[in-house]
Nucleic acid binder design. Structure first.
Lengths: 228, 228
DNA sequence: CTGGTCGGTATACGACGTAAACCATAGAGA
DNA sequence: TCTCTATGGTTTACGTCGTATACCGACCAG
């Protein structure tokens, strides 16, 4: 007969908090997707009445911004120093990986102004710092940052919102090829066929473009160093 | 007293159609933004009762896909041939420009699998064809296409979803700098200051990255031609 | 004992997408 | 000319969403 005396009961207390709400929302989104993440639903998942969440979160947008920053805080940051290229590469790959782990976050990241919490600031500062310490001018840093940033988010979002999984892609693509005006789109057909054959769906593609960008930036940096 | 006899009355007839619904939706979104584009609202704008739209459109998603493709049909397509680089550049700039004209379309384009109507097919086929005719291998075409595609959409979306206009940016940025832990983010501060000074907000940035990519692709193409 | 604050609940409102039933008109066939 | 039916618009209604507001129980300071 343990009860009443305020401890030892398993679930009844632990009275919620912004931290717990956000963490719960993140887990809920991972488990059921963004579409099902609703205030009432999240409340239920936390054993609480939906409206209770508003005691810890201003509104749903606030909550969404919160979990985006939580996701962003999972990424490995590049550290400013000599090996700028390797560091940026590592940071970009980590970002990509994290976004693949939380696919719903891509959408939020992109519709909500790209995130603007502490974790995002940290990430931005480290990327910018890595470029600057790597010998890039302020202007080139600015351009390089935006290009890289856009690229990572873009591929992540493209990968995530692509409607097909690798398994059923082949059959769906073949069916598609049968239905649409293939004769008018020879190159598209070739492209899709290539996708079917290689089965690739942005796996190595991400690194391909990333290295392309990093090499290009390096070239620009060196050109600026010798020229002008 | 002209009436009854089926013509000359100004507004009463012209009985709607999928075409008119989509066109109306596009204009509505341009005028009031995506958030206010609601079935009832669009109905009202078309002088009709909301539910009437379902006689011409399967559901709201169908409608959204429809207007995305309508937007996409406005872009200038590259034409396969010798001048692949100039053509791709032109096509990319046109896409960017169109997306700036219909900011809401970025969001749809990106959350909805990137569009998949006739206009999108046409665009893809032309870009792919331009690369192939420009001397790119199937693999390189595939990579190049994705990189360019992601880049254009990414910058467009980033530009659109950036919360500030050029006018108020300076003051907002300065206020921001005062509030957040500036000491811990020296490079971010430098970055923002640069934005304030140069006032630039992705204007020339888009072309910068675009040319970077095109040059890189050219280099890869030439390397593949001489090597292997 | 008392009163206030804090965290959770109950209830309610308005807006959304859309299913289902209904109804007006305009031709086509007799 | 009269009916029959398909087409396109209206009405009503349902369930779900975010959230404003009022409430209420437990805790803690005086």
């Amino acid at each position: 007969m343990v009860s009443k005396s305020s401890q030892s009961g398993a679930q009844p207390r632990v009275p919620l908090s912004r931290e717990r709400v956000l963490r719960g929302a993140l887990e809920f989104a991972d488990a059921h997707g963004l579409a099902l993440l609703t205030m009432r639903g999240l409340g239920e998942a936390l054993g609480v009445e939906g409206m209770a969440l508003y005691k810890h979160v201003a509104n749903k947008d606030d909550l969404l911004e919160g979990i985006v920053d939580l996701v962003l805080s999972e990424v490995d940051l590049p550290s400013p120093g000599e090996a700028w290229k390797a560091e940026l590469r590592r940071g970009a790959l980590s970002t990509f990986e994290v976004l693949m782990r939380h696919p719903w976050a891509c959408q939020l990241l992109v519709t909500g102004g790209g995130g603007s919490g502490p974790a995002r600031w940290r990430q931005m500062d480290n990327i910018l710092g890595t470029l600057r310490k790597g010998g890039f001018s302020v202007e080139l840093t600015h351009h390089g940052f935006h290009v890289l940033d856009v690229y990572v988010k873009g591929v992540a979002l493209g990968t995530v919102s692509f409607p097909l999984q690798k398994e059923d892609m082949a059959e769906v693509a073949e069916k598609f090829l049968r239905e649409f005006p293939a004769a008018d789109h020879p190159y598209l057909v070739e492209h899709i066929s290539y996708h079917i054959d290689s089965g690739v769906l942005g796996e190595g593609d991400f690194e391909f473009g990333l290295d392309l960008l990093l090499d290009s930036l390096e070239r620009l940096r060196d050109a600026a160093a010798t020229g002008t």
